[in-house]
């Protein structure tokens, strides 16, 4: 197992390096003049010089920074190039927000987490519970009606659900605030309640369908028939035997989704005006704010690669038949 972990770790590192290198090259090929975009319509030469300096674009891209070395005499300054700075997570500051990328992420990620985490926890529990129940009661009225409701929820666009909730529960019944945010944990929950609710509902349909399908395979398996023949109760059949075998796809979906609890949901946060991470990438693309785009791409790639690594390890915990070699 140790050999496997070491191999996987080195592979993950090389994947991350590859993503960073590829994204960096693409940025330099595609976004040929990010300074121009930041400078606005009437950019003067003085503005170009200043913005180039702020974005770190006056440094060499890959090659060693001999100019800085001759000036400062410091050997570390040789590595003061754009690519090495990115590798060391030293991103230029966001031009749109005039704030360091880390400060921006540190400000927004916890807010997204405050909405996404409860929605994820509640949603996962409901999805698995409902999927197991309807799989056990296949071809019953409950099964048909749940499947119908799930397909209906899958068919309706998320944005429509958000707007409907905002209008009905917010503007019409006035139970929830339509949108907005406030600092302070309790006040934040006041505004996060409806986004959490709609997020659970919007994602319920597709997940119930998926888990139901997996559960159905298990419910019809030989070992379940054996357990029933031995007199095991329906509850224990579902929760002890079937659930155990359901865990591999659950682990896969769950662990890989964890990084996205911090990155938020774009449309949800936009419509409910949650100042989280969700819209940051889209806004950065629209505003040509390349430091934010690069930082978010890198960090998401790193988080995803790490989570895949963790998923492999979790398989061994969930299924003793899995051996990592």
């Amino acid at each position: 197992m140790l050999a496997y972990l070491l191999r996987k770790f080195l592979l993950t590192l090389s994947i991350i390096f590859g993503v960073i290198l590829l994204t960096f090259v693409l940025f330099n090929v595609v976004a040929k003049d990010p300074v121009r975009a930041m400078g606005g319509k009437q950019m003067k030469e003085t503005d170009r010089i200043r913005i180039t300096h702020e974005m770190g674009l006056d440094k060499p891209r890959f090659a060693l920074n001999f100019a800085e070395y001759h000036e400062t005499g410091s050997k570390w300054s040789l590595l003061d190039t754009q690519f090495f700075n990115i590798l060391a997570f030293q991103f230029p500051k966001s031009q749109r927000h005039q704030e360091s990328v880390w400060s921006l992420f540190g400000r927004k990620a916890p807010i997204s987490f405050l909405v996404q985490a409860p929605a994820f926890v509640i949603g996962l529990g409901l999805q698995i519970a409902i999927a197991i129940i309807v799989a056990a009661k296949r071809k019953s009225v409950l099964d048909y009606s749940t499947t119908f409701a799930a397909v209906l929820m899958m068919s309706i666009p998320g944005l429509s659900i958000y707007l409907a909730f905002q209008w009905f529960f917010g503007a019409y019944l006035k139970i929830f605030p339509v949108a907005g945010w406030s600092p302070g944990f309790l006040l934040a929950i006041h505004f996060a309640a409806m986004p959490i609710l709609v997020s659970v509902i919007a994602n319920l349909g597709s997940s119930i369908r998926f888990y139901r399908t997996v559960a159905l395979e298990e419910v019809n398996a030989d070992y379940v028939r054996t357990a029933r023949a031995k007199g095991v109760s329906q509850t224990n059949v579902l929760l002890v035997h079937v659930l155990r075998n359901l865990l591999i796809p659950v682990v896969t979906n769950t662990i890989v989704a964890l990084p996205f609890l911090l990155t938020g949901a774009l449309v949800l946060e936009k419509m409910f005006q949650i100042p989280g991470f969700g819209g940051l990438l889209t806004e950065a693309i629209g505003a040509n704010d390349s430091p934010v785009i690069m930082a978010e791409v890198y960090l998401t790639a790193i988080a995803y690669a790490i989570m895949l690594f963790v998923t492999d390890i979790c398989y061994t915990l969930v299924d003793p038949r899995v051996v990592l070699r």
Partner: peptide, 16 residues
């Protein structure tokens, strides 16, 4: 002044 990026939620709040 409350920050809102989207016009429709602001409209609903104004109507209220």
């Amino acid at each position: 002044l409350d920050y809102f990026d989207e016009a429709l939620p602001v409209w609903l709040l104004f109507r209220q």
